[in-house]
Simulated assay, not measured.
Amino acid sequence: MTTFRRLVVCVMAVGLSAACSSGGARLAAAQKPAKPLSVEQLAAKVGCTPRIQVNATDMRQAYCKTVDGEFFLTTFSTQAGKDAWMDTAPEYNPHLVGYLWTALSSRQVLELLKERLGGDLHLKDHRTMKTIN
């Protein structure tokens, strides 16, 4: 990576100064956790006991209900699997999207979950990846 391109990447990634000083490869690693969270770990972060709906090798999905509301948590074994699922996800509901996971509910519930789970809120059209940070 040229010095100019590295500078552009670093400017775009304000707050990831350690990654910038070590080169572009570390930048990508800094953006995702070392290991993806499981449905159970995500559920524990928001205080629910997950009711598993789908328990497949490539995807797991659970229903949760908390004082914040009702929602579905879905985890994926690969980014390609998550991308394929997002392409076919119902466009009438927003999704909270993290590293190899999504949460599906109303925008109001997802905004509350975002405080504890992080992620990006994707609204309606998943193909254009409209997000609210």
Rank of each mutant, 00 (worst) to 15 (best):
P50D: 14
S17P: 03
G81W: 08
L7N: 13
L117C: 02
T102S: 08
A89F: 05
G15F: 00
L117S: 03
G81N: 08
G47C: 05
L123V: 14
P50Y: 07
R6M: 13
T74G: 01
K114H: 06
A89H: 03
T66P: 01
S17E: 14
L42C: 03
V109Y: 00
A44D: 10
C64I: 01
K65V: 15
L117Q: 02
G47P: 06
W85V: 08
W101N: 02
G47H: 07
A84E: 08
A19E: 08
T75I: 04
R51G: 07
R51N: 13
N55T: 09
V9I: 15
K45W: 00
V67A: 15
P33T: 11
S105R: 00
L112W: 07
R51H: 12
A25H: 11
S106F: 01
R116S: 07
E115G: 05
N55D: 15
C48Q: 04
R5V: 09
T131L: 08
E70N: 14
D87Y: 08
H122V: 06
P36F: 03
A44K: 09
R127I: 05
L110I: 05
V9D: 12
G98C: 02
W85R: 06
V46Q: 05
V46A: 01
K65A: 14
A103H: 01
V54E: 11
M59F: 06
S22D: 13
L96V: 01
E91W: 12
A103S: 01
G24W: 13
A29I: 11
K130Y: 10
G23S: 02
Q108A: 07
Q79P: 13
R5G: 02
V97A: 02
K32Q: 09
T57W: 11
G98I: 00
K32G: 10
V11C: 11
M12F: 13
R107T: 09
G118V: 04
H122K: 04
G119D: 04
E111N: 10
L16F: 10
S106N: 04
K124H: 11
G47W: 00
V39Q: 04
L104V: 09
V97I: 05
D68K: 09
L42S: 03
I52H: 04
D87M: 12
A44I: 04
G98E: 02
L113Q: 01
F4K: 11
I52F: 05
L104K: 09
A44H: 06
R60W: 03
R107H: 02
S21D: 10
L104Q: 10
S21E: 15
T74L: 02
A34C: 04
T128M: 11
A28F: 10
N55Q: 13
A80Y: 13
N93E: 08
M129E: 12
V8P: 06
D125L: 13
K32S: 14
L121Q: 04
R6N: 15
L7A: 12
L7I: 10
